[in-house]
């Protein structure tokens, strides 16, 4: 009995000793001050432009490609969220103006129009800048995504115009003026860019 206990203890010690060389890699290290210092300027100071939405994202992985793909996906998630926030605000203002009684039909149609722009596909969401760094055993990627908001505004207006009744009602609101102003600014910006 005593021998078998001693043998079991020795076996357990031997196994534990064999595992001493392995190290666990932290795949999501908390950024320390050195890492933050090396972050590109555009990551901490995201550009501002009325014609674009911007999203700065970072991701880590022991696989270089995954670090890049994760950051790209996170950046596009942020763009999609910004789009939703922007058009939710427009929807809320339209709702306040048309009311919930007779205007509820228009509100439903408007919601349908903006959801078809926001919730389906992001058009033109490109990587503007990127950076790739290796921190010991993991890769850290940074991406700055940009998306021209003007094109999304134009798509929304086109969807609304396709529904004549909704367009007539929408034209009488301040929400229309706001969207129309933004589209005008975008058209002017495109002319200035020579597009």
């Amino acid at each position: 009995m005593n021998r078998s206990v001693v043998a079991a203890v020795l076996f357990a010690l031997a196994i534990t000793g064999c595992g001493g060389g392995s190290k666990i890699v932290d795949l999501t290290p908390v950024p320390n001050s050195e890492i933050l210092k090396r972050a590109p300027n555009w990551f901490t100071d995201v550009p501002q432009d009325p014609n674009y939405l911007f999203a700065a994202a970072t991701a880590t992985s022991s696989d270089m490609q995954l670090a890049i793909n994760k950051a790209q996906t996170e950046g596009r998630n942020q763009l999609a969220q910004q789009m939703e926030v922007k058009f939710n605000g427009l929807q809320k203002r339209f709702q306040e103006e048309v009311g919930v009684g007779d205007g509820s039909e228009y509100l439903d149609q408007f919601t349908l129009a903006y959801k078809s722009v926001v919730s389906t596909v992001l058009h033109g969401s490109r990587i503007s800048k990127q950076d790739l760094q290796q921190e010991r055993q993991i890769w850290r990627s940074y991406v700055l995504m940009e998306m021209p908001i003007g094109e999304a505004n134009q798509q929304l207006m086109a969807k609304i115009k396709a529904n004549q009744n909704l367009y007539t009602r929408f034209r009488a609101t301040e929400a229309f003026d706001e969207l129309d102003d933004e589209i005008d600014r975008f058209e002017q910006w495109k002319k200035n860019q020579g597009n």
């Binding site: 596009r76 998630n77 999609a80 596909v121 033109g124 969401s125 490109r126």
Partner: peptide
């Protein structure tokens, strides 16, 4: 080849990306 494949995929995403969360 892999770098070119990744670049083409990113091109496709930059033209149309459907995000579902």
């Amino acid at each position: 080849r892999e770098a070119e494949r990744q670049a083409r995929q990113e091109l496709a995403y930059s033209i149309a990306a459907r995000q579902r969360r």
